[in-house]
């Protein structure tokens, strides 16, 4: 397949993905915005006033980066898992599989689609946060890089979930029982400095902890983790997951029989 053909195929997949979540914006863009707005009101505003400072910042300022990151993670993941699984379920994935689109173009197309939704929701949440906190971005390059890498990682994770899923239950199990606890325990609402040493060590095993804290560093210039170490972890995850997804596609796991 020529480079130009691959580019057109890639654009087609991305446009299709963006069109899909835009068409059902009431299901895809509005609910996370409402949920995060409620977090801002309840945790940030009502509870936050009593909490006072966290990690040297007003509690509202402290949770804003974590909540943005949470929305990006959840939406990147759920976009790819629901889109790819729906196509598998309806067998419309066969449209792609019979075509000459290389596996890496298919994968990259779905990942960019997931990133688009994750970042769109992230942008909405960021705009909402402006009503509640005075946001300054200390390190814009780090902020943008970490959010892009995180959305890549969770889009890829969503892809793997979709490949192995056999029912709609299977695509909700991981977000409910794995992703949500990891996000909540990843330092979105608190600084791990507050935890006893044992739980600090346990938190260090949670990859989301690094993502949230690096993103927070980008915003506030303060973090519980070493930023370089965090980028290294993110990079390794992204590469390993991308290779894993390509391997699954190449072997037709869950899609070819």
């Amino acid at each position: 397949m020529y480079v130009n053909h691959k580019r057109i195929a890639f654009e087609t997949i991305v446009i299709k993905e963006i069109r899909r979540f835009s068409r059902i914006w009431v299901q895809t863009l509005v609910p996370p915005a409402i949920t995060i707005a409620l977090y801002f009101v309840i945790f940030g505003n009502l509870v936050g006033r009593r909490v006072g400072e966290m990690g040297g910042f007003q509690y509202m300022e402290f949770i804003v980066p974590g909540l943005i990151m949470m929305s990006v993670i959840q939406n990147s993941y759920s976009n790819v898992v629901s889109s790819f699984f729906s196509q598998k379920f309806q067998r419309s994935i066969e449209e792609l599989l019979v075509s000459p689109v290389p596996n890496y173009v298919i994968l990259t197309g779905f990942v960019v689609g997931g990133m688009a939704r994750g970042l769109a929701v992230g942008a909405i949440v960021t705009m909402l946060s402006l009503f509640f906190a005075d946001i300054q971005i200390a390190h814009p390059v780090i902020t943008v890089t970490v959010i892009l890498l995180t959305s890549v990682v969770f889009s890829l994770a969503g892809f793997i979930n979709a490949v192995y899923a056999n029912s709609f239950d299977d695509i909700s199990i991981v977000p409910t029982f794995v992703l949500t606890p990891l996000i909540y325990l990843g330092g979105v609402f608190y600084s791990t400095q507050m935890l006893p040493p044992f739980w600090q060590a346990v938190s260090a095993l949670n990859p989301i902890f690094y993502m949230v804290n690096t993103f927070r560093y980008g915003f506030l210039g303060s973090s519980d983790v070493d930023v370089i170490w965090a980028f290294l972890i993110l990079g390794v995850f992204a590469i390993a997951l991308y290779c894993g997804c390509l391997w699954l596609l190449r072997h037709g796991t869950g899609i070819r029989f």
Partner: peptide, 25 residues
């Protein structure tokens, strides 16, 4: 194929044009 395997929520024209895109048209 034997079974209907396109997205039932998409428009007729979009289904065909999208498929063409997969072939690099």
């Amino acid at each position: 194929p034997q079974e209907v395997n396109f997205n039932l929520f998409e428009r007729v024209e979009d289904i065909v044009i999208t498929q063409a895109g997969y072939y690099g048209l």
